[in-house]
Design a protein around this nucleic acid. Sequence first.
RNA 1: GGGUCUGUGCCCGAGUGGCCAAAGGGAGCGGACUGUAAAUCCGCCGGCUUCGCCUACGUAGGUUCAAAUCCUACCGGGCCCA
Length: 422
Amino acid sequence: MLHDSTDRAELAERLKTQASIYVGFDPTAGSLHAGNMVGLLFLRRFQNAGHKVVSLAGGATGMIGDPSGKSDERNLLDDDGLAKNLAGIVPQLRQFLDFDHSDNPAKLLDNRAWTVGVPVLQFLRDVGKHVTVNQMIAKDSVKARMGRTDDPTQRVDQVQGISFTEFSYMLLQAHDFYWLHENEGVELQAGGSDQWGNITLGIDLIRRKSQKSAFGLTWPLLTKPDGSKYGKTAGGDTIWLSPEQMSPYRFYQAWLQVDDSELEKLLLQLTFVSVSEVNQAVVTHSEAPHARSGHKLLAYEVTSLVHGAEAADAAVAASDALFGGSVAHLDESTLSMLAAEVPTVVVSASTLEVEGNLVDLLIQADLATSKGDARKLLKQNGISLNDSKATPESVVGPQDLLHKRFCLIRRGKKKVVMAIFD
RNA sequence: GGGUCUGUGCCCGAGUGGCCAAAGGGAGCGGACUGUAAAUCCGCCGGCUUCGCCUACGUAGGUUCAAAUCCUACCGGGCCCA
C-alpha cells in the first residue's frame, strides 16, 4: 500500500488526531484515468478515517507538465484546453470524495488561484532562494534528461534534454505544498512514488520558510507487468474513468483482463475490499485460476466505484452474454441490452446482400482501419458474425441477422461491435 | 554566434545511388494452445480498384535513366566552444 514516507513513526503519531492531507491531479486530459484512482481512493480512505482531505487540481502545474517519469518534453496546454480538462475532471473528483461531509468535507482547490498572479521576481525570491539547483538536478527524472545518467545504455546523443519550464515544475509543486501548509493547514502530501522528489522538495521548502515540519507519503506507482504506467500516455491503452471515453462495459473488461500477478495489488490499491477478503480472493484464485473469480471481483468493485453499481451490473450481464457461449439463442431483450453496453453501428438494411459489404461494415464498425486491414482480418480468420467465422467471400445477408436486425460482429476474441440494421 | 553530430515506418534501429514499402528488434493485431491469463508457436503489421498501382525515409528544390542514399537551402534535435 505504501511505497515510502517521511519518518513513519512520527507520521503515525501525527495521524492519531485529525490531520490534513493533499493529493494533486494535473488536468493533462479531459478525464482522469486508472492511474489517478489510487490517489482518489487514498484521499477517500483518509477522509473516511476522519482526516481533512484536499484534492488539488493543477490548473497551473498542468500548464507546465511534470517531467517525472517522462522521457519526452510535453506539449504545453493552452488556457482553453486546460479549462476544458478541468471541467471534465472536477466532477470525477466529486464522485470519489465527499464534499458535503458535515464534519470534514473534502476540498477542491486549483493551484492557479495562488500561482497565476505571482510575479516572477517574487517567486524567484520566495521559492527559488530556498532551493538549490544541486538539489533539483539530483532528481532522477532530471538526471535522465540531462544525460548525466550512470546508465550506460543511455547514449548521450540520444538524450532529449529538458526545458527550463519542465525543470521548474518541481518548484511550483513545492510552492503548492508550502501554500497549502500555510493557508489550509495541510501537513501531508501524498502521491505516486514518482512524486517523491517533488514532495520532499516541498517539505524542505516548508521547513526553511516556516521552520515547520511536514510529511510526505507515496504509494507504489501502478504499473503493468512490463513496467509501464497504468493509464499513462506512453503506450498501451489508457483506462479512462469517464464513460464518454471508455464505456463501463469496456472499463469492466479492462479489469477482467489484467494479469494474474497484478490481481492482489490492484484489489488492494483500487478497491475498498478488506485485506482479509483480498487474501481470500487470492487464495480462491490460485486454487481455481480458470474460474477467474478474483478478476470478476476486481472488475466489479472498480467498475461500481467509478460508474456505480447499476452500470457494473449491466457490464457483468453483457460480459456473461458475450462470453457465455453462443449468442444466437439470446432473446431480443437481451440483445437490446447488449446493444446498450457494447459499441454499436447502425447500418442501412439496403446494404444487405451487396457484394463486399462486410469489408465496409468492418470499417464502419471501427473494427478495421482500412479495407486492406479488413481483408487481412477476414483472411486470417479474425472476424466472426454472431457465432460463425466469416471468410473473405462472406456477404452479410438476412441469414446473419438475429431478430431481424442485430448482428454481432467480433474481431478476435475480445472486440465486439453490435451492428443494427434498419 | 562558431564547431560537430543528427533527423528513416507506432517506437528503437539498419540502410550511404538501382536488388527498398525499406534488415533486425520491440510494441500492436489475427490464429493455435488456454482461463476473455502468462509463456510458446504461426501469420500479419503504409494505402488502394491488391499478381499491379499510388504515397512514403525532417521540409523545399537540384543532379541522375534511377535517390532514403549525392548536392543546396531551410527547419528541428543533441553535444562542445563562445
